[in-house]
Write a protein that binds this DNA or RNA. Structure first.
Lengths: 225, 225
DNA sequence: TTTGCCCTTGATGAATTTATTACTAGTTGA
DNA sequence: TCAACTAGTAATAAATTCATCAAGGGCAAA
């Protein structure tokens, strides 16, 4: 489960991130509204926690923007004690819930569970693989590098998915042929090389950080380093 | 709108009843858990507000009982400051929301609106999907592109709705066949292609911005870009 | 029953994707 | 360093996959 926390106060961030990590969530943090917007729109999150008072775009605006683009991502707003008007505005902007600071962690966690339960009932969350700034949405079958959408052909996609699912494992050409092409004999071919080449052109060409690596004599690996 | 308030503290009752009446709600009050149970189960309410500390059955128990019998009635719990454990328990018992006393009336009202909106179209308008200048009214089942009304046949509409609900997801022909045509075998057909073609003629033909895209070898997607 | 619309099927050529080949570039180890 | 091997690339031929059309069947309303 990937969560996004948009919050500038370091102690809130620290408490929430540690608490949620302990519960098995993967938490990304944006320190201001603009970063939050970029992250929320370019990456996949299962739930977003927004502070209202933020540098850059404020939480209410951000809530509206996100809900417009991604109506199926639940949002929890955080607000300072006493600013009830904000709460009302937040809920009217599409927020699903809110908490008043200071809040207890158990309370936040209970609300997160409630929202995930509610949303998952109807639409199940997308399955997503992230490797560095490469994002593969297995459910939607689309691929992004940074915020650049990448169009792949069917075979290219199958190859990428196989490499990504086996991140950091060296895969021999035979492994790849068996899993992506469904052939376990006929080794007089270099399709794999050719398709790895195609993938590199689409995925690694415009980036300094190469993700597809050659293990000479062994095969190929997909990894960050 | 009929609301039920189960609460024994007279001043809370007074504030809430007067406030909600002013907003046009019809509020019934039960002063203890047993009365609350009887009223909740025998009458129709659109929403129930439950104090946790109550004479008779306590609010948590009552919540569980009501949710078992009438899972579609939203419930807001009221709890005293500092008893976070109760909150967690309440949400796990099926409560939809909670408020910590003392609370501001505006906050209660915002949460009531949120819940009513979520549970039932009664407070909110029709459910509408907008993709670029295409507008699909799921309630009225009509479709507009720009301000041009578009007439679709039943199957065309079902297909469009499915594509739109899965905006940006690549949907395989099989996905589409299963969800729009209810068949999961018989794959020797090209109905999907033909109907996508029909839809394109009605929706994309007269617009520069195409919304239905083909992902060769994978299926079709509906998206802006 | 007939009419008219809606749905489905099959066929066609066009477009795109895939596989192969042949060649060049790069790497390894004696 | 040089051969021998391994990997990368471009061009092209083969194979899929798609868009579109036209025709026939089914069903409901007149």
């Amino acid at each position: 489960m990937n969560l996004l926390l948009v919050e500038d106060e370091p102690n809130v961030v620290s408490v929430v991130v540690r608490g949620l990590a302990a519960e098995g969530f993967n938490v990304s943090v944006a320190p201001d509204g603009n970063t939050g917007e970029k992250m929320a729109l370019t990456n996949h999150f299962d739930l977003i926690i927004l502070d209202i008072m933020l540098p850059g775009i404020n939480g209410l605006e951000l809530c509206k923007i996100i809900k417009k683009e991604k109506p199926n991502v639940p949002i929890i707003m955080l607000t300072a004690l006493g600013s009830t008007e904000n709460v009302v505005a937040g809920l009217d902007n599409g927020a699903d819930d809110y908490l008043i600071k200071p809040f207890k962690f158990a309370e936040l966690f209970a609300r997160i569970r409630m929202l995930l339960r509610r949303y998952n009932g109807s639409v199940n969350p997308d399955q997503v693989i992230n490797i560095s700034d490469l994002q593969i949405n297995l459910t939607a079958k689309n691929v992004k590098r940074g915020d650049q959408e990448i169009t792949l052909t069917a075979t290219e996609y199958r190859l990428l998915e196989f490499l990504a699912k086996n991140k950091s494992k060296i895969l021999s050409r035979i492994d790849i042929l068996e899993n992506v092409w469904d052939i376990d004999f006929n080794l007089g071919t270099n399709v794999v090389d050719v398709y790895v080449n195609y993938l590199r052109k689409k995925i690694d060409k415009n980036s300094d950080q190469k993700l597809i690596h050659t293990a000479v004599g062994l095969g190929y690996v997909m990894k960050e380093a």
